[in-house]
């Protein structure tokens, strides 16, 4: 199972990693219990920052697609196939869209909404 990234793509590298690993688990190319390469090794192979791989692994672990067993490394979660079918990140546009619509109905301009959003993100 090979993973391919394009550093010139508008999609962030960590997002490319999570998407491909998630797809591989969903399609059965990566079976439950399969060991993933260590963060630093995958980063060295792809010649990217280890923090990028760490972020991708952290997101996949959050979604229970993979699990980390301490120093033994990261493995595909036993229920990874089930968990890989849902991606919490995909729900963000619809949730945000509903909030933006509500604020527009309340009379706020798009600039005011953007300022409020930025303020919330900073806090």
């Amino acid at each position: 199972m090979r993973i391919t990234i394009d550093v010139n793509s508008p999609q962030p590298v960590f997002s490319q990693l999570t998407e491909q690993i998630r797809t591989a688990v969903k399609d059965g190319a990566l079976k439950p219990g399969t060991a993933l390469p260590p963060i630093r090794q995958l980063a060295a192979d792809l010649q990217i920052n280890p923090n990028t791989v760490a972020k991708a692994y952290a997101l996949l672990e959050r979604d229970a697609v993979i699990e980390t067993r301490g120093r033994r490394g990261s493995f595909v979660h036993r229920d990874g196939k089930k968990h890989s079918r849902t991606n919490p990140a995909e729900q963000a546009p619809s949730v945000l869209g509903a909030a933006v619509e509500k604020l527009r109905e309340a009379g706020l301009t798009d600039s005011e909404i953007r300022i409020a959003f930025a303020s919330v993100m900073r806090s």
Binding site: M1, L36, Q41
Partner: peptide, 13 residues
């Protein structure tokens, strides 16, 4: 400088 498109094996050796 590395190429823009890079690939690697997704397994632990």
């Amino acid at each position: 400088p590395a190429p823009a498109i890079r690939s690697a094996d997704l397994r632990s050796w």
